[in-house]
């Protein structure tokens, strides 16, 4: 190859790369401007002590992070978020999977169910919070329970279950987790159903011919085929549940002692409640790291599973 040829080849390649890159350029530009810049600004501020207004930002090095490491409330809020996530992972996803399995069969009103199960995710969190707050309300008017749950519990004779749902530390967080799951299971349902529908029907037939019962078929055919979808659902559930906060604000306001605090509500209260901006940014950075670590471990796990 002559030198001139090589040069023109290199030039061609460069041009080619540039054209290819121009496809991602709009996305990269929007992203850099609206995400990367705020991200670095927050990263920088996490090393400062600042009240959000004052012209003085005092550099404090790692002090915010050191304090955060010893902040019991912060770690408790992490634990609360993990609890919500755990309920979402088990209860919500099990429900979603069961519903998806049921709707994957040839049954009547299949389309109706599909439409209905996706209605809760469509509603805004403000609407969901307001309605559920009413359902879980405790208190009386004219000798009647105002909250619908208490009212119906009372009506069907389960008086001992009538309860102060949202201001009792034993139930407040669970109630929030259940409402969150209620709002979210539609996503899992639709994704899992979609996954189930991609499974080749012939595989089921083959299993039947081999004499496998429905339970065996489920374990040996359905589950292995569904692993990638299940992993995606799990990752999205974890990310969604760890970051829940609008629902909490609209259900319990500033929270029940520290029993309903999650990382995002802590960040918000550090920002506008106690005016510690730098500290709030340090919280944001730490929380982001934790989430990335969780997602990475799922990524590794899914690679392992794929190999098997």
């Amino acid at each position: 190859m002559s030198e001139a040829n090589e040069k023109s080849f290199k030039f061609f390649q460069l041009k080619n790369n540039l054209i290819n890159f121009s496809f991602v350029l709009p996305a990269v530009i929007i992203f850099s401007v609206f995400y990367i810049y705020p991200f670095f600004e927050i990263f920088r501020l996490s090393f400062y002590s600042w009240n959000g207004i004052s012209p003085i930002e005092r550099f404090v090095g790692w002090q915010n992070f050191i304090e955060l490491a010893h902040d019991d409330v912060w770690w408790k809020s992490m634990g609360n978020a993990a609890y919500i996530t755990l309920i979402a992972l088990t209860f919500q996803n099990a429900l979603a999977f069961a519903l998806a399995l049921a709707c994957d069969r040839e049954i009547r009103m299949k389309r109706f169910y599909r439409v209905v199960f996706f209605i809760p995710p469509v509603l805004s969190e403000i609407v969901v919070g307001l309605i559920w707050q009413w359902i879980l309300y405790s208190g009386f008017q004219d000798g009647q329970h105002i909250g619908l749950l208490n009212y119906y519990l009372d009506r069907i004779g389960l008086h001992h279950l009538v309860h102060n749902w949202l201001s009792n530390p034993d139930t407040a967080l669970t109630c929030i987790a259940v409402v969150h799951s209620w709002k979210g299971f539609g996503w899992g349902f639709i994704m899992l159903l979609a996954g189930l529908q991609t499974i080749d029907r012939q595989l089921y037939e083959a299993a039947k011919v081999d004499g496998a019962g429905s339970w065996r078929t489920f374990w040996n055919v359905t589950i292995p085929m569904m692993v990638p979808v299940i992993l995606v659902v799990i990752v999205l559930t974890v990310l969604g549940s760890m970051q829940v906060f609008v629902l909490i604000l609209s259900m319990v306001g500033q929270g029940l002692v520290y029993h309903t605090e999650v990382p995002v509500t802590r960040i918000l209260s550090a920002m506008t409640g106690t005016n510690r901006f730098g500290y709030a940014c340090a919280m944001g950075v730490t929380f982001g790291m934790v989430l990335i670590m969780i997602s990475l471990s799922f990524k590794l796990l899914s690679n392992k599973v794929k190999q098997v």
């Binding site: 102060n164 201001s167 407040a172 306001g253 929270g255 029940l256």
Partner: peptide, 9 residues
């Protein structure tokens, strides 16, 4: 206190 006072908006 009325029920649920601690979380009442």
């Amino acid at each position: 206190f009325a029920e649920g006072i601690v979380t009442k908006p």
